[in-house]
Write a protein that binds this DNA or RNA. Sequence first.
DNA 1: AAGACACACAACCGCATGGTT
DNA 2: TAACCATGCGGTTGTGTGTCT
Length: 318
Amino acid sequence: MVRAPCCDENSGLIKKGPWTPEEDEKLLDYVQLHGHGSWRALPKRAGLNRCGKSCRLRWTNYLRPDIKRGKYSDEEEQIIINLHSVLGNKWSKIASHLPGRTDNEIKNHWNTHLRKKLLQRGIDPQTHKPISDLNLLANLAHLLYASNLTNLMNPWDNNNAFRQHSDATTQLVKIQLLQTMMQVINTTTPLPNIAQTQTSLSGHYNNNNTTIPQQAPLEFPNLDVNVNSQQQFNDFADIDKAIAWFGDGFQPQVVGANCNNMNSDCHTQSSESALPSINQVESKIGPTYASSQSPTSNIFEAWEKFLDDEGHSWEDIL
DNA sequence: AAGACACACAACCGCATGGTT
DNA sequence: TAACCATGCGGTTGTGTGTCT
């Protein structure tokens, strides 16, 4: 079936491109007086050299009196992110939850702002899952080990430029590792397979042809974490493990969206999993990005305290 | 000051869908 | 049932504006 064009494109009279204030006024006046009726017939009746489709778009995306303009609030952005994690690119459905915002506007805002925000947080904007690349962790592990090796080779020479560089690298790597770990936790996805990361170190770095001894992998206390990066930690069988680590107060949480500002739709459409709530995580390791915007140093201290309490060090993890 | 570039957003395009004849 | 029409939707493009060099 051949579709009829919405406008007579051969007439040469149909205007395209940005609307002028005069055109806006004509359209606005006409719709307010008569309603839009048939969009196809509207341009002629309103005295506009536009196609009906263009008029409809201009009205629904710009001229409609109930359109809310201006900056998006944090709450609106969170709603968009939550809904997108559940609905995907269903802009009109998302827009129906945000009075005064159009699907086009939300789509633009997503593409220009929210996508980047999520990427900066290490979250894949399509899947809403963390970009938790174990290769990255392994690389960081290598860097940290190399850095520590340098320190071992020059333990008393604090002024050595090589040593200073190594210290800085160590701190940088620790921070990067922390950020990666926090991304994993904040987005309620699998904990990294630390044992696998540890194993990947073996044999990579030698000192005087001495193979690095393989240490026992660190495991989170009472929790036999042994998942790979692709595996979702959402198997109900793991609830017992989660309870074992987080205590009796553990409750299964909704995933698939950030539930802090969740509306009822998200609860009904997401799946449950055996993941701890942010509060439960924070009770163990201190504040996270979910409850504070810039707790990096607190997180750092909390992690070090946590590791110290458990009798581990950074080197154990790596 | 001017050109290059990046960004934000308005507008367009093609397809899908549902209703009517 | 086929043809046509109106509208909705999502991806893409075009354009104005601000920033950088």
